[in-house]
Design a protein around this nucleic acid. Structure first.
Lengths: 189, 189
DNA sequence: CTTGTTTTACAACGCCTGTTGTAAATACGC
DNA sequence: GCGTATTTACAACAGGCGTTGTAAAACAAG
């Protein structure tokens, strides 16, 4: 009988290594050899647990996206839209670093349909969750919850861009102020 | 005496070729050989007019950025902030395509300080111009024009992200509505 | 036409890439 | 402890990369 290894755990380990490389040296530097070196193992483990580099990148992107999504889902219950948005805001340095990795992948997704599909999937999930939260918060029935959710996500993305590249220009306090202003305009406390 | 060639024009020609390659096949595909082939010339012209690939990429990024900036500056006079913002909005397919190229470069800029510097330079210019326009439009003196400009640019970026990846979700009409809503909140018609 | 300089072509270099194949190490059921 | 299937290591491969050098072509001035 064979040596038994948790496949999912190994894949996660490799993906984490890739993440570190990207964060330190950029997506260009994320070669199979470098990622393998980062795990401390040989390149064989990468080839063994991933069908190829594409597969590895897709898994990594999925992790970036799903991590954000999971954080949103773990928001304090009660279906509060604000809590969901606050969690997604790039308020601290760690979140900003994550945002920068996210940008690197988005730049790739532009020319890789499979990655773009992943991105759309997560946007859709976030939008749906946010729309539901808005409804729970008592959003005016005459408004289109999905559309309003999309607008709020646009705000989120805009803040993320600026917080990632010029963090000193949009303090956490100001981000929250802008968010609350918009929520107030929707009649949501 | 030597054959005379307009250096700037040649550089622009090469950059345009790179742009086409990026737009069609992604930034990964933008190799020196491929770009040269796109111009119809040999790789020597690239090496001759650019110090290296870095130089070429920087020039290309500069063009993407400055093109947007130039459009903004060419906005109908009168210092109207709205005109400036409308021009930057990804309202049509061409502008959305440009936005996608922009994203590809931003993903690169994350790990290339020189490109990031270029990006910041343009953001600063845009912000300054917008702040001035806001003042001209009679923005409440008690508000920080630069900060409000930054907030408006954040809105712009958010709309761009969504328009680039899910154009059907944010129609031009809706983009304008969201923009006008914010401007109205600032007391600017 | 000759001269002198720029511009272009082409080939070669060394390096790094993703992938594949072979062979050794590992650890479980028996 | 033996057999066996999995997991890892290492080496090799062909191919593409950015860059560099040499040599030909193009063209303006005299």
């Amino acid at each position: 009988m064979p040596r038994v290894v948790d496949h999912e755990a190994r894949r996660a380990e490799v993906v984490a290594a890739l993440w570190r490389v990207v964060s330190r040296d950029g997506l260009d530097a994320a070669t199979v050899r470098r990622v393998a070196a980062e795990t401390g193992m040989s390149t064989s483990v990468v080839s063994h647990y991933f069908a190829g580099k594409e597969d590895l990148l897709r898994a990594a992107f999925r992790l970036v996206l799903d991590r954000g999504l999971a954080r949103a889902r773990a928001a304090p219950a009660g279906g509060r839209a604000r809590a969901l948005l606050v969690i997604a805001l790039p308020l601290d340095a760690e979140r900003r670093a994550e945002a920068r990795i996210w940008f690197a992948f988005v730049g790739l997704a532009v020319s890789r349909p499979d990655l773009e599909a992943e991105q759309r999937r997560v946007y859709r999930a976030l939008r749906t969750a946010l729309a539901r939260a808005l409804r729970d918060d008592g959003l005016d029935e005459r408004l289109d919850a999905e559309a309003e959710a999309a607008a709020l996500i646009a705000l989120l993305d805009g803040l993320t861009v600026q917080a990632a590249f010029e963090p000193w220009r949009l303090s956490g306090r100001r981000q929250l102020a802008l968010l609350d202003e918009r929520l107030a305009a929707l009649g949501i406390g």
